[in-house]
Simulated scan of single mutants.
Amino acid sequence: MAIAYRQQVDDDTEFAIWKIEEEADELYNQLQLDEQEKAYYEKLKIGKRNLHWLGTRVLLRKMLRTDEYIDCKVDAHGKPYLVNLPYHISLSHSFDYAAVMISTQPVGIDIEQVKEKVERIAHKFMRKEELDFLNERQKINQLYVCWCVKEAVYKCYGQKEVSFVNNIILEPFEFEGHGFVDAHLKKGDVNKSYEVGYLQYHDYMIGYVKG
């Protein structure tokens, strides 16, 4: 297992993706876990879910450059946070990769393997006006950018009960392999704008944002 890609977003923000090639035991042995984490790990099913949980935490350790115990908890909204370190984090995973983003401000990251079937569920996360700006030649890639961008915004905002269709609105963009998408989160009194980065890495798409 090694860092496959790393990007410095700005002076205090970076993200990395890690290709998971080890067995679970090898990853587990690189971590120090408290009793609660050990109990949670034991409940995970053997397989990708197991490896993903381990992989994101090993990558987090590598990015923080420490072999010490990292107290990483999850809040009431499901957002991970570091108890004793002054950083915001976001975690993601998809098939063979784990992704971690770290900053002094709230962040969100999402990684997804690109598959044709996304077209069948596009209506579940896209507004009509967003579907209308898709380029037919790049439709699948654009749909994955849209999903990753909305997921990154959702994670950065860090609150439950946000609708991808009704609350996260994207401005038109052309797919270029990497770039930025303007996104707006509108929910009740909340009206926030984000410039969300995206990156195609082999057959994966990554969306990342700093709030």
Rank of each mutant, 00 (worst) to 15 (best):
A2I: 10
Q7G: 01
Q8W: 06
V9Q: 07
D11H: 07
D12L: 02
F15R: 09
A16Y: 01
E22V: 00
E22S: 05
E23I: 01
L27W: 06
L27N: 06
Q30I: 14
L31F: 14
L33N: 14
Y40C: 00
Y40G: 00
E42G: 00
K43Q: 13
K45E: 06
I46A: 01
G47Q: 04
K48N: 13
R49S: 10
W53R: 05
L54K: 07
L54R: 09
T56Y: 01
L59T: 10
L59A: 05
R61P: 11
D67P: 07
D67R: 14
C72I: 06
C72T: 01
K73E: 00
V74K: 05
V74G: 00
A76R: 01
A76G: 02
G78R: 04
P80A: 06
Y81I: 13
Y81K: 06
P86S: 04
Y87T: 09
S90T: 15
L91I: 13
L91T: 12
H93R: 08
S94L: 06
F95L: 06
D96H: 04
A99M: 13
A99V: 10
Q105R: 09
P106G: 01
V107W: 10
V107S: 09
G108Y: 13
G108N: 12
I109E: 05
D110H: 07
D110V: 10
K115C: 03
E116Y: 13
E116A: 14
R120P: 00
F125H: 02
E129T: 05
E129W: 06
E130F: 08
E130W: 08
L131A: 07
L131E: 11
N135W: 07
N141Q: 13
Q142E: 15
Y144L: 05
V145C: 15
C146S: 15
C146M: 15
C148S: 15
V149S: 15
K150N: 14
K150W: 14
C156R: 10
C156P: 06
Y157T: 09
G158H: 11
S163T: 06
S163K: 02
S163D: 03
F164S: 09
V165H: 00
N166M: 07
I168C: 09
P172H: 11
E174G: 01
E174N: 04
F175T: 03
F175Y: 15
E176S: 07
F180D: 08
F180M: 11
F180E: 13
A183N: 11
K187Y: 00
G188M: 05
G188K: 11
D189A: 12
N191S: 09
N191K: 05
Y194Q: 08
E195Y: 03
L199A: 00
Y201F: 14
Y201P: 04
Y201S: 06
H202A: 15
M205Q: 11
M205C: 08
K210M: 12
G211V: 14
